[in-house]
Simulated scan of single mutants.
Amino acid sequence: MNAQRRSTRSLHIPARPEQVPLARRAVLDTLRAWGVPAHSEAVQAIRLIASELLTNVVLHAAAATEQVGVVLELCDGVWIRMGVHDGHPECPAPGAGDTEATHGRGLQIVHALIEELHGVVLTERTDDGGKTVWVELPCRVQDDGDRYEGPDTADSRVPVERPVPVEPGVPVERPVPVEPRVPVERRVPVEPRVPVEPRVPLEPRVPVEPRVPVEPRVWIDVARL
């Protein structure tokens, strides 16, 4: 591909898992600075491809690679070219395509995505015994007045809607203030009941014998005796 105008940036990161998000963020920020729309298919594809290629190096080529090299180029404002270099001699290859596999399908997705966007992927041997995987995708650069200047995060790539200008003289409806919620009193937890011991049955009363009637006393007049 012969390009007349070319913007280039390169970086090197340690071959460790925690460095993958940092490298991906640097790639996306660079494309943003070059005017490539953050919500475009090309940028979203580069985000996924960069994650997969860098993760593949960390998982399979870290023993032969201390530093992973990433090269990013914007050619004529219509092509994005990204290269990921490692020191392992073997070329990455997509898996067998098992639809029930839980991992190992990243390169299949990368190749399918590049083909869908009419891009190119190729592997180049390097003099140090390693390789560089190159990916080329078509893109479109925004004009300076249309560039999105939103928050600089890797996961926030949707442009913010600008407010619509209001015609003069038209009253603007103000939002009705919402009354604050009344705090609900929490119920006091009730202590569990203490089980009551069953009553001991009382022994039946012993019947009382009736009292024997007492004979009346007889008074004797002593004086008469």
Results as ranks from 00 to 15, higher is better:
Q4A: 13
R5H: 13
R9A: 12
H12M: 14
A15L: 07
V20K: 04
L22H: 12
L22N: 08
A23M: 06
T30G: 04
W34H: 09
A38L: 08
A38K: 03
V58M: 01
V58A: 00
A61K: 04
A61G: 08
A64F: 06
V70A: 04
V71D: 15
L74H: 04
G87D: 03
G87Q: 03
E90R: 13
C91E: 13
P94Q: 06
T99H: 10
T102L: 14
H103S: 14
R105N: 14
E116T: 14
G119V: 10
V120R: 14
T123L: 07
G129Y: 07
G129E: 09
G129N: 08
K131H: 12
W134S: 07
W134L: 06
V135W: 01
V135Q: 00
E136R: 12
C139P: 01
C139V: 09
C139W: 01
D144L: 04
G150N: 02
P159N: 05
P165T: 11
P165R: 12
V172H: 04
V176L: 13
P177W: 02
V178A: 14
R193S: 11
P195G: 02
R199Y: 09
V212C: 03
V214G: 06
P216M: 02
R217K: 12
V218N: 09
D221V: 12
R224L: 14
L225W: 15
